[in-house]
Write a protein that binds this DNA or RNA. Structure first.
Lengths: 248, 248
DNA sequence: CGTAATATTGACTCACTTCAATCAACGTGG
DNA sequence: CCACGTTGATTGAAGTGAGTCAATATTACG
């Protein structure tokens, strides 16, 4: 149970959803796991894969969920931050329905699927925490449908940036308003359902309005209230308070 | 366990995901429930609601999941067919993150939330079936993000129609190629991230190409292969075969 | 340094929206 | 049984946000 024990990351993640007792923690720490490193843009999961032996989560680095149309257009359907599960869906689904790709160099912790299944069904706190995690992911997907379907480019980009920053902050990975932003224009475009050319223009407009500042590889929020308003952002869909008492 | 027992619908639904043994079935049938009727466009769930006492599923009729932007634009983020859960997410989330609205007259079966939680965590087959259901829902959301983000109007509408028909068929509710289609142009538009004017033109084009036929209140698929090709539709994301053996 | 990604910018195009008018279907009450 | 109102469908004309194409600049990095 050393603090540098990789599985402590999982324990802490679960504890943001449901309080775990000592024996729960012990059981999680005893799960069989291996660690895997990937270089961008390696695939962690490929759509259609069926022999799924583990569920992974991210120790360091970033990944994206994406799907492709027949004509080769890519849509990013979700982001994976450090501490997030990459394929919790494979706990019970037998076929991958989308791709997961490394955005940066990343370390993933692969937990044995059968053992995690077993744990999820025998320890109700752990099961509940995992279940909540997958329910929140669905909620985020719904917000993305709204974002892409009914907001214009300016709002979409702003919303996406807000989600990124808030999730970073919630994961304890963001110090100030500024942060290293891991996505290129093209990736941002694929996440927003736009083109990189238009994302470039939109970011320039946001910077012109004073909402953000851009330097080579990082992104600063110079006016959080403004960008939140532009992006029509409300954090409710992230269910960040779920760890609290019932009915919050 | 009479065949007209409302909860048999839930049993059958769960059995499409995981085989249940006799005692599982018995336990499900013993869940406390009430039945509720709604007229369109009544709300079954309102975003932000916190005192969630039950999880509902649809006995007859149709509903939609939807969210609104500040400026009042509506986006439909999912469809609920007869036999589908309306708010399985409330099994463990304490706040509604979107609205659910009746599309037609509908009967819903409200299952006591605490009892269902209890069952989900004590009976692993039931728990697994419910969990799979919520994972599939997330998969459908991902496909919607792709559909709205990276397909043009023609493809989007075709894809949406394919999903509807396939889910109807899977629920055992569709006889032939034709079917009563419960959505207006405006609702179709809100589901596809388009305007009703453009949906009208797009449907007309699809009918002109011989892919569908439209009469007042119904929609016929005159050429399933064509509409599937137009919509870039592959049913993998619906995980319909999940009930089968592992690794299918 | 050289080379490949990524970012930037301008000019032009187009898919979809907006606005607005008309039409059809349907339920309802007198 | 029919006028009427309401909701949904249809069509045309005009506008626009975002895409496309293409050239150039910048950055990363071996």
């Amino acid at each position: 149970m050393a603090p540098d024990q990789p599985m402590m990351l999982l324990v802490r993640k679960l504890q943001t959803r449901v309080p775990l007792d000592r024996s729960d923690v012990q059981a999680v720490l005893e799960l069989p796991f291996t660690i895997h490193s990937y270089e961008a843009p390696a695939y962690l999961v490929r759509e259609g894969t069926t022999a799924l032996q583990q569920c992974s989560f991210i120790r360091t680095g970033f990944a994206i969920r994406q799907k492709l149309t027949v004509d080769g257009n890519r849509q990013i359907v979700g982001l994976c931050l450090p501490g997030d599960f990459v394929d919790l869906q494979h706990l019970f689904l037998n076929r991958a329905d989308h791709n997961v790709q490394a955005l940066t160099r990343l370390d993933a912790i692969d937990v044995d699927r059968a053992a995690l299944q077993q744990l999820a069904q025998s320890r109700s706190n752990v099961g509940k925490a995992l279940w909540i995690d997958s329910l929140i992911e669905a909620s985020v997907h719904r917000e993305w449908v709204l974002n892409i379907g009914r907001r214009d480019a300016r709002q979409r980009i702003a919303h996406l940036l807000c989600e990124f920053v808030l999730r970073m902050r919630h994961a304890g990975l963001e110090q100030e308003a500024s942060c290293e932003f891991p996505m290129t224009l093209e990736q941002l475009a694929d996440a927003a359902g736009l083109t990189s050319v238009h994302v470039n223009r939109t970011l320039k407009a946001l910077a012109g309005a004073g909402a953000i500042r851009r330097t080579k590889r990082s992104l600063t929020f110079t006016d959080w209230d403004q960008i939140r308003d532009i992006g029509d952002f409300s954090a409710l869909y992230l269910h960040l308070e779920q760890g609290g008492p019932e009915g919050v």
